[in-house]
């Protein structure tokens, strides 16, 4: 016997894991079907036993008086049985080795965080000076003196190096196509732009996985340079670059051409 629908024919043996008559069911005719539609909606959760007690009672009461919905219940139970007994899906099981990987990532991340916290908590030289000044008499005088020192330091460390670079012909920026990107001992290099939210653990795992190390960056454009240990092996280099590009936290990975 087949169940008829408007344009499909469903064998009963397959159990129509579906409402017995699709066009009359829950979502189509909720008000006019004497509760069949609502029961059809709730059957999956009646079968897995997760309905609230009132819903459970209501569905059970309806099923007791409704042969049509009982057929549908039976069909849904068949579907449930087939799917829950399906052994086709490859299994996944936890393992000590996998847990070890998680702990390594955790350690890497926490070490990064601790380093950052340590950097934040350590008072800077200027901070120490400011604290010392606050403990002194006439703080305004000392504050002005400090301001003068800071300005002098800015001139020394920021302005002068730029002048020096300009006079020596060097550029402040390094672009992705910069032909002057240095290569040491012939090791291939790659310019990388990471996503802003990459975690240090992910970064470490990624670099280890392609046998690379950070050698430069970030540039003012946020570009890092990594060196690959794949000298003389173009295939390995291409594979490493493909792996880098595949990573969700890598926005761009371009080889540096010497």
């Amino acid at each position: 016997m087949n169940l008829k629908n408007s344009d499909i024919t469903i064998p009963v043996a397959l159990g129509s894991f579906f409402p017995q008559n699709l066009e009359e069911s829950a979502l189509m005719n909720r008000k006019a079907d004497d509760g069949h539609g609502i029961v059809a909606e709730l059957l999956p959760w009646y079968v897995n036993g997760t309905l609230g007690s009132k819903e459970q009672e209501w569905v059970a009461g309806h099923l007791a008086d409704c042969p049509k919905c009982r057929v549908e219940l039976e069909q849904y139970q068949q579907l449930s049985s087939v799917i829950s007994n399906n052994t086709e899906t490859p299994d996944w099981q936890p393992s000590p080795a996998h847990f070890g990987q998680i702990l390594s990532a955790l350690d890497a991340e926490e070490n990064g965080v601790i380093r950052n916290v340590a950097v934040v908590k350590k008072p800077s030289f200027l901070g120490q000076c400011a604290d010392w000044l606050q403990a002194q008499a006439k703080p305004l005088v000392w504050a002005l003196a400090l301001e003068t020192i800071v300005l002098a330091a800015l001139v020394l460390f920021v302005v002068l190096p730029r002048l020096d670079q300009q006079t020596s012909g060097q550029t402040v920026f390094q672009t992705l196509s910069d032909a002057h990107a240095p290569t040491v001992a012939g090791l291939p290099r790659v310019h990388i732009v990471f996503a802003d939210d990459i975690m240090i653990g992910d970064l470490r795992l990624l670099l280890v996985s392609v046998n690379a190390r950070l050698v430069d960056g970030p540039s003012k454009l946020g570009v890092y340079t990594v060196e690959l240990a794949t000298v003389g092996n173009p295939d390995a280099t291409a594979l490493a670059i493909a792996t880098l590009r595949k990573h969700s936290k890598v926005k761009l990975a371009e080889p540096v051409h010497p």
Partner: peptide, 10 residues
């Protein structure tokens, strides 16, 4: 869930 069952039927 309803549409999943319907799609499976089809």
């Amino acid at each position: 869930m309803f549409h999943a069952r319907k799609k499976l039927a089809e």
